[in-house]
C-alpha cells in the first residue's frame, strides 16, 4: 500500500509538473522542435529543471543498498547501442514532431483535453500492441528487471 501511494504521488507530481511547465501543450512542444522556424526555447528549462533533482538522486542512489520503500533497485543494465535503440528513437521522434505529444504529456492531457488526448493515447497503445505482437517474446524469467521502457533486451 505504501508503494502504491508513493507511485500515485510520483505520478501526480509528474503530471502537475508537466501542466505547469507548458509541456502539456502540443503547440508549445512543436514550437520547441521548430528550430528552423518560430523557435520557442522555453522547454529547455523544463529538461534542465528535471535533470537537476535526478542528477542528485543518482548520487544518492549510488550510496544506497536498497530503495527506501522497496526491497531492491530494479534498474536497466543494458549498455548496447544497437539498431533497435536507434530505430525506435527515430520513429518516436517523428511521432513526437507530428503531434507534439510524447507519452507523459499525452496521458496527462486526458484530464486537460480529453477528446484529443484519448485519440492519441488509443493510437499510442495500438502502436505498443503492434510492437508486442510483432517482436519475439522476451524471456519471462527476468521479468523483475526493468529497462527504461520496462523491457529487457534479449541476450
Amino acid at each position: 500500500m505504501k508503494q502504491i501511494s508513493l507511485a500515485l504521488l510520483a505520478g501526480a507530481l509528474f503530471g502537475a509538473g508537466l501542466a505547469l511547465s507548458g509541456m502539456a501543450d502540443p503547440a508549445k512542444v512543436r514550437g520547441f522542435l521548430d528550430i528552423f522556424g518560430a523557435w520557442n526555447p522555453t522547454l529547455m528549462f523544463v529538461m534542465g529543471g528535471a535533470l537537476m533533482p535526478m542528477g542528485v538522486a543518482w548520487r544518492i542512489q549510488a550510496k544506497l543498498r536498497a530503495p527506501l520503500a522497496a526491497e531492491r533497485f530494479n534498474l536497466p543494465d543494458t549498455t548496447k547501442l544497437d539498431a533497435r535503440l536507434i530505430g525506435g528513437a527515430v520513429l518516436f521522434g517523428i511521432g513526437w514532431g507530428v503531434a507534439g505529444l510524447c507519452p507523459g504529456p499525452a496521458i496527462t492531457d486526458l484530464a486537460l483535453a480529453p477528446r484529443a488526448a484519448f485519440v492519441f493515447v488509443l493510437a499510442m497503445l495500438a502502436g505498443m500492441a503492434a510492437f508486442k505482437f510483432t517482436s519475439p517474446r522476451q524471456p519471462t524469467a527476468r521479468n523483475l528487471t526493468a529497462d527504461w521502457g520496462g523491457r529487457k533486451d534479449e541476450r
Binding site: C102, L125, A129, R151
Partner: peptide
Amino acid sequence: GGLLVGFGTRL
C-alpha cells in the same frame, strides 16, 4: 503521431 510514438518508444 500516437501510432509512431507507441511503436517507437517500445522498440
